[in-house]
């Protein structure tokens, strides 16, 4: 972020307001959102090859086995890649926000957003922990905060 292009506003990264559009689960992702509402982060693990799978799959994307079992993640990981959005994708989002791909310690990746720090604190390799925040219709959305 070069100083001359930085907005004059706050550069603290916070959760989006609960007014953003809620997720629209499918039948095979429902367990994920049900767990999230309890503030639990879950993923699937293949019974056959033990690969950790996310986002929710029908068959193991590595070995093709159908036996995938939901497991709870400790919610700890590292930032694999990140960006900071300064122009909102749609008006209900508040900028800046920081979409990031997180490497979870259980061995899978997920897209989320980093909160609880300033833009300048973002870095590949940053240790983070999951934190849930409410959105509409009773959903809770996982974010990640520096651990």
């Amino acid at each position: 972020m070069s100083p001359e292009s930085a907005p004059t506003g706050d550069d603290r990264l916070v959760p989006q307001p609960a007014t953003i559009p809620p997720p629209t689960p499918s039948s095979h992702s429902a367990p994920y959102w049900e767990a999230a509402a309890r503030h639990e982060l879950v993923y699937q693990r293949c019974d056959a090859c033990k690969r950790a799978e996310f986002d929710p799959a029908v068959v193991c994307r590595r070995c093709g086995a159908r036996a995938l079992t939901w497991a709870r993640s400790a919610g700890l990981g590292t930032v694999y890649s990140w960006t900071v959005v300064w122009r909102p994708q749609q008006p209900s989002f508040v900028v800046p926000y920081a979409p990031a791909i997180i490497d979870l310690d259980e061995g899978y990746q997920m897209l989320a957003a980093v909160i609880g720090c300033r833009v300048a604190d973002l870095a590949v390799g940053l240790r983070v922990a999951v934190e849930f925040h409410p959105v509409a219709d009773g959903f809770a959305l996982p974010y990640f905060r520096p651990a």
Binding site: P21, D55, P88, F93, P99, L111
Partner: peptide
């Protein structure tokens, strides 16, 4: 008022994080 609206993901695991093309390619 929106950025590249045809790239707005109608998908539960990316839409809540405000993704659009520039952010996808930025990652």
């Amino acid at each position: 008022a929106s950025t590249a609206p045809w790239t707005r993901p109608n998908h539960e695991f990316v839409a809540p994080y405000g993704m659009f093309t520039a952010a996808e390619f930025a990652l």
